[in-house]
């Protein structure tokens, strides 16, 4: 079967629009994702002047919370959101329309990217106003691109959870994955404060690889080629899980 790229793109945009509309009509979901990272920055970083007042450390802290914002948006909006959608009869209907997995997954990727960006706005504004974080324009743009790339494995993780599990199972699993990965990857405490064994272990986590690359792009130091390998490896692995879960999914069972 030949794939008409133009048609796939139009359909992807239609699915994106559909998901964006569904999400923004229940604004509290969007607002929650926007507020939480900024709140975390206010509680954990702003009171510590030695971090907030230092350009390098403040930029690094904002970058870490930015990755946390993106990964939590991905894992929750996908993990729980997809599981919720699958429980709805309209989702079964959409699966009977003449579209394959590409427009649906593509629509989820694009709408997830959009809401991830939106979730960054209050954090970046607060970081600029209340801390000494001062990336150059190039570093800022590079950082936004990098944080989306670094969020990719979590996006696929969210999709894998959403397509494999029910809503009741997806919610706790999303939480169980999110917080240890965020902590272990140095998103709450910088890895310089880790004991040696944790630092070594952390090096194999997708959060740590993403964080190192992001800090490298925004402050100019810290990442290695190994981080790239780890991030790409996790992305491929989790994407394969997501595709498998999608293929196995036949909606709810009934009668």
């Amino acid at each position: 079967m030949t794939v008409d790229a133009g048609r796939e793109l139009r359909l992807t945009l239609a699915h994106t629009r559909f998901q964006v509309l569904e999400t923004v009509r229940i604004p509290i979901a969007v607002i929650g994702n926007m507020v939480f990272p900024a709140l975390a920055l206010s509680f954990f970083v702003l009171p510590q002047r030695e971090i907030a007042g230092d350009t390098q450390l403040a930029t690094q802290a904002v970058a870490q919370f930015a990755l946390f914002a993106v990964m939590s948006t991905c894992i929750f909006t996908y993990g729980v959101g997809v599981a919720e959608d699958r429980a709805q009869p309209f989702d079964a209907y959409i699966r009977t329309l003449p579209a394959g997995p590409v427009p649906r997954l593509g629509g989820r990727l694009l709408s997830g990217g959009l809401f991830s960006l939106i979730a960054l706005v209050p954090l970046l504004v607060l970081g600029a106003v209340a801390t000494e974080a001062a990336p150059s324009a190039g570093q800022l743009i590079g950082g936004i691109g990098m944080v989306l790339l670094a969020g990719t494995p979590f996006l696929f993780a969210g999709l894998a959870i959403g397509y494999a599990l029910s809503v009741k199972a997806a919610l706790p699993i999303a939480q169980v994955i999110l917080f240890p990965l965020a902590f272990g990857g140095g998103l709450f405490l910088p890895p310089e404060m880790f004991p040696g064994w944790l630092d070594t272990f952390s090096g194999f986590l997708p959060t740590r690889a993403g964080r190192d690359l992001l800090v490298h792009v925004t402050t100019g130091s810290g990442a290695t080629v190994f981080d790239v390998v780890v991030l790409v490896g996790w992305t491929v692995l989790v994407a394969a899980l997501a595709v498998t879960a999608y293929r196995r999914d036949q909606g709810r069972r009934f009668r």
């Binding site: 079967m1 559909f18 509309l21 569904e22 009509r25 229940i26 309209f90 209907y93 009977t96 003449p98």
Partner: peptide
Amino acid sequence: DPASRARLGTTPQETGLPPTL
């Protein structure tokens, strides 16, 4: 195969429309 469904029309269940759209 999605291509097989290009000439197919189906209905969602009555309760299954996306409520906010």
